[in-house]
C-alpha cells in the first residue's frame, strides 16, 4: 500500500462572489498518476494552483506528507521546490537559454554547484529530447519543444510530486504526441503526477485514478475503468458523451 503524499481536505476557494471550488476532498498516493478531468471553468486549474499555493485557498487543508501547507504564515518557496508544476503556457524564462532555464532553480533554490546543476539539467533535457537545443532561447522553439523544456526544468528540481495544468492544450495537434510521450515515460518510471487534462486517452490509459470535476466540486472519482466504462453520475456520463462526439 503506497503512502499518501498529498491530501486535500474540504478545500474551498472563491473569487469575489463566485465560488470556484467547494469542499474539495481527494488524495494522491506516491507513485500514482492522477488525472483531473472536467468541463471548462469547473475549477481544475484553480485547484492545481491552490495546491501549489499560487492561489490562496479560503478554507480547508492541503496536507503534503502530513503537513498543512495552506496555513497562514507557511513559507511557500521551500514547499514549491518539492512540488513541480508544468503550465499550459510553458512559462519559460525568456531571458535565458534552454540550459539556463533548467539550471537557475537548482543553483539558486537548491544551492547546487553550477557544474552539478549543468550536468543534471543536461541529463533531464536529454530525457525529454531537448538536449540539442541547450543554447536556444525559448522564443526560438516550437510549442511542443517549449513544453518539453518546461518539463525538464521541473524535473531538474527532482520534485516529489509533479503537477500538470493542461500541458498540451496550447499545442498544435502534431506536437501533442511528443509531450504526451514524455509524460507517459515519466509515469512508467513511477513519477507521482497530478494531471489536469482534456486528453481522455491519456487519462484512461496512463492514470491510476481519475477525478471528474463539475462546477467546483468533485463529482466522481475512481479508477479509469470505473469512470470511463461505468460512470455512476449523470454529469460524468454527459461530459464523456460530449467528448466522444467531438
Amino acid at each position: 500500500m503506497a503512502e499518501t503524499i498529498l491530501e486535500v481536505r474540504h478545500l474551498s476557494k472563491s473569487f469575489g462572489s463566485q465560488t470556484v471550488l467547494r469542499d474539495v476532498d481527494f488524495s494522491v498516493r506516491t507513485g500514482d498518476v492522477t488525472s483531473i478531468i472536467g468541463a471548462s471553468g469547473s475549477g481544475k486549474s484553480t485547484l492545481l494552483r491552490c495546491i501549489n499555493l499560487l492561489e490562496t485557498p479560503d478554507s480547508g487543508e492541503i496536507l503534503f506528507r502530513g503537513e498543512n501547507v495552506a496555513r497562514p504564515g507557511f513559507s511557500a518557496p521551500a514547499y514549491r521546490a518539492k512540488v513541480g508544476m508544468v503550465f499550459q503556457s510553458f512559462n519559460l524564462f525568456n531571458n535565458m537559454t534552454v540550459l539556463e532555464n533548467c539550471v537557475v532553480g537548482q543553483v539558486r533554490v537548491l544551492r547546487r554547484s553550477r557544474e552539478q546543476a549543468r550536468a543534471n539539467a543536461l541529463r533531464y533535457l536529454d530525457r525529454v529530447g531537448m538536449a540539442p537545443y541547450v543554447n536556444a532561447r525559448p522564443r526560438q522553439l516550437s510549442g511542443g519543444q517549449k513544453q518539453r523544456v518546461a518539463i525538464a526544468r521541473a524535473l531538474a528540481m527532482e520534485p516529489e510530486l509533479l503537477l500538470f495544468d493542461e500541458p498540451t492544450s496550447a499545442l498544435d495537434p502534431e506536437m501533442v504526441g511528443e509531450v504526451l510521450s514524455v509524460m507517459r515515460a515519466l509515469a512508467a518510471e513511477g513519477m507521482t503526477m497530478l494531471v489536469v487534462t482534456h486528453e481522455m486517452a491519456f487519462a484512461r490509459d496512463v492514470s491510476r485514478r481519475v477525478v471528474f470535476m463539475d462546477k467546483g466540486v468533485i463529482c466522481e472519482q475512481g479508477s479509469p475503468e470505473a469512470i470511463f466504462s461505468d460512470p455512476q453520475r449523470e454529469e460524468t456520463r454527459s461530459f464523456l458523451a460530449r467528448f466522444r462526439q467531438s
Binding site: A76, P77, G84, F90, N91, G105, V109, R153
Partner: peptide, 9 residues
C-alpha cells in the same frame, strides 16, 4: 509563476 513554481523567492 514559473519562477515561483520551482521554489524561487
Amino acid at each position: 509563476e514559473g519562477a515561483k513554481a520551482i521554489g524561487m523567492t
